[in-house]
């Protein structure tokens, strides 16, 4: 019988992804491209919000979009109609994108001629929060019909998001959704989170959201 030996490792399983993410973050900064990682659950209006955002900004900056999905290319085709560059990334059954997949997406999209690249992550509030993609900033969408209890159920997502978009604000009257409660719950998990109530359908709040994007893109553009 061979002798057994214990090898101590003590490393986080996310470590190799975190290393890749840090590399990608630096690479984006060096190339002066702002990379936004957009996350939400399915049906929150991610693609509609994206279309509205692109329409507002496309005349003043060069935008490229990566649509991540388990399968299909419906989202990428919707984005292409806005006239900006878009590619579809298939995760092949995986519930999130990690940093190496994001890097591959960036290479396929080509960012040399871009000011802002947007990654539309897989619709899911759990796994995408655990894997750093290497994005400059993380934004999440929570829509009114999903309920104001979501920070209690998916705390990590609210902790890692730089921005919370509360979508479908135009239908708030017919749902039991308290905007002050959600703000309090989100801020408790993440005091620095920026919160924008929006309606991708009516256009309400889109200006405040795109103003934030404008200043972030400018900051990356002008940084050394």
């Amino acid at each position: 019988m061979d002798e057994l030996k214990v090898i101590e490792i003590k490393k986080s399983i996310y470590e190799s992804n975190d290393v890749e993410a840090a590399k990608l973050k630096k690479d984006m900064k060096d190339k002066h491209v702002f990379l936004l990682n957009l996350m939400s659950s399915p049906g929150s209006g991610k693609t509609t919000t994206l279309v509205k955002t692109i329409e507002e900004l496309k005349s003043e900056m060069r935008i490229g979009v990566m649509e991540a999905d388990i399968d299909s290319d419906v989202d990428a085709r919707t984005i292409l109609k806005t006239g900006v560059k878009a590619i579809q990334i298939h995760t092949g059954g995986m519930c999130h994108l990690d940093a190496p997949m994001t890097k591959e997406g960036i290479e396929n999209l080509g960012i040399e001629d871009l000011d802002m690249a947007i990654l539309e992550n897989v619709g899911n509030l759990v796994c995408p929060a655990e894997f750093d993609t290497g994005a400059t900033k993380n934004a999440m969408i929570l829509s009114v019909p999903e309920g104001d209890d979501k920070p209690l159920k998916y705390p990590l997502m609210f902790e890692i998001a730089d921005v919370l978009l509360i979508n479908k604000i135009d239908v708030i009257d017919i749902f039991d959704f308290d905007i002050d409660v959600i703000k309090k719950r989100a801020k408790r998990l993440n005091p620095d989170i920026k919160i924008f109530p929006i309606s991708a359908r009516t256009g309400e709040g889109i200006k405040e959201w795109t103003d934030w994007l404008r200043s972030e893109v400018k900051f990356v553009k002008e940084s050394n």
């Binding site: 061979d2 002798e3 057994l4 030996k5 214990v6 090898i7 101590e8 490792i9 003590k10 490393k11 986080s12 399983i13 996310y14």
Partner: peptide, 11 residues
Amino acid sequence: EFNLKEIVVTE
């Protein structure tokens, strides 16, 4: 946490 703590092996 989610860590790989140690492995028990033969060399």
